[in-house]
Amino acid sequence: MHQNSILLLFFFLMGIALIVFTYIFFSSKKADQGMSNPLKKRFWFFLILVFILGIFASVTIPNSPYFAHAGETPAKVVHVAAAQFIFYMSEQAIDPAKPSGHPIELPANEVVEFRVTSLDVNHGFAIYDETGRLITQTQAMPGYVNRLRYKFDQPGKYHVLCLEYCGIAHQIMRTSFTVN
């Protein structure tokens, strides 16, 4: 699970940092000489960090959502219009003058595309699986359409929550759809 590995990585890095800081702190208690000007010759340390982060970047960037399923034709397109504090989802285009939606069913194991826009302020369009885990998201911005492609491999009920603060009922702005 993505979130778990993120948390693990974070704890690992935090652990290292804590150990190093503690060790260094206590080393000052039984001190000998130390260095006169600490701002000297730390360049290699910097290079190592650049190297590590460089690898990290080149591994992760190709996994960015913008490139997901880019060459494929989606099996289904779902139009999403977010408005304070409702999501309209429809397989037909949504007319902002009289927006309406209908229950959505999507095929499993096929690429689907969400075309997400907003009719008023910025909103978020975040898809949660049945266990309440965030699996993917995009923003809903007025005047623009964001195209989010995703392949659901588990049938079931999915929830959509608003993940961009949009006002007083932001926390209850939600909808759902099924994948079978």
Partner: peptide
Amino acid sequence: AVTVFSVWVAVYRTKIKW
């Protein structure tokens, strides 16, 4: 990197008035 490392080096085995 520069700041953190400098702070480390400034403290490491150095008599410091904490």
